[in-house]
Design a protein around this nucleic acid. Structure first.
Lengths: 196, 196
DNA sequence: TGGGCAAGCGGAGCCTCGCTCCGGAAACGA
DNA sequence: TCGTTTCCGGAGCGAGGCTCCGCTTGCCCA
């Protein structure tokens, strides 16, 4: 509720034009740099790519987490919205859960290093962690509950744990390499099935 | 074979007394610091704890990976040896696999941050990665093969992938928190069962 | 249109951390 | 005791995160 994107309470101030322009520029630059150098790229690089000073980055996005959130917000929102939709269109709730998790894995795997940073216990990423949790755990809970109710899976696992497990499995899975995170996640989800 | 611990080929030189003493001191200091600050603790801290200069650390252990390996070598060896033993004493190969993986998880979870560093793609940790792989993957393969032969589990998963998955699941699981890596690993192993 | 001023900008600079390098100290053999 | 060789310590460099403050610029009002 209150996803105040630009109007929190009473309009504080209209924000200057150059500031808005810079924010836009920064978002694009960050997206570019994240793509090539990963989400842990040096702040200086992002500033350089955007052609602004570092102060500007820190003013708009006090922590790296804020920047990452801003860059990927759209995709996360779409992921969150797809949960209920899948529940409608899929054959069974368990299938819906599986497909949704697939989308989640796709998202993480294509964002170089995001999974790692998400689980990192380094200070400064709690915001990021919290955002993902706030946005996605409820969706996952809904899918999980539906599947549990239909008796397809065991019901003793929290959505938080499942998502964190999936996130962990995606660490270091950059579409190359001998490590296929999707396989492992499949196994994990398979392990959820009721052992009837 | 040739686990040359101190005699590689022809004895090169007897090594000075103070050097040996320092190595011992460093190992203890590192163990202590790893325990309190995790395996990514600043090198300076370890040097301080040991009461030596940083040069001394780097001379004995050129990379952090070397130091970590030295500190945990004993435990890893014991883990490796326990594989065949479990195969003897356990009810079924799949049970043996499960128990061995439990030991692996215990090891990772009690070493603050080790799992994270193991999967990290930062340069400098390949040695560590390689050591764990060399030492443990064959053991895991043996257990996996035995379980596959007995028809208990699917046979399309490499030991490497399994271990990496387990390692990933252990990231950030520091015995506290709402995240119980053991549970997730159990699920993963359960997912391995033949879906007959 | 022009003047005043807060919002905004940029990057020098400080801090931490990894790692190197070399002058000096200490051990060992004769 | 002395020479040689090994070993030690920490100053110092580069990289990266983050801050701070003097300068610039958009905006509003007369």
């Amino acid at each position: 509720m209150n996803d105040g994107d630009e109007g929190a309470g009473q309009e504080p101030r209209p924000k200057r034009a150059d500031a808005r322009r810079n924010e836009e520029t920064l978002l694009n630059a960050a997206a570019t740099v994240f793509l090539t150098s990963g989400v842990e790229a040096p702040v200086r690089d992002i500033a350089a790519e955007a052609g602004v000073g570092m102060g500007t980055i820190y003013r708009h996005f006090p922590t790296r987490a804020d920047l990452i959130i801003a860059v990927y917000r759209h995709q996360v929102e779409r992921l969150a919205e797809s949960g209920p939709a899948l529940l409608e269109t899929s054959a069974t709730p368990h299938a819906a859960l599986g497909e949704w998790i697939d989308l989640f894995v796709d998202f993480l795997v294509t964002k170089h290093g995001l999974a790692g940073v998400l689980q990192s216990d380094n200070a400064g990423f709690e915001t990021l962690h919290a955002y993902f949790l706030d946005r996605l755990v409820p969706v996952c809970t809904q899918l999980l509950d539906a599947a549990a109710e239909s008796g397809e899976i065991r019901s003793d696992l929290q959505a938080y744990e499942l998502m964190r497990g999936v996130g962990n499995l995606c660490i270091g899975a950059d579409s190359d390499s001998l490590y296929d995170a999707r396989r492992l996640v499949e196994l994990l989800v398979a392990g959820l099935r009721q052992p009837r």
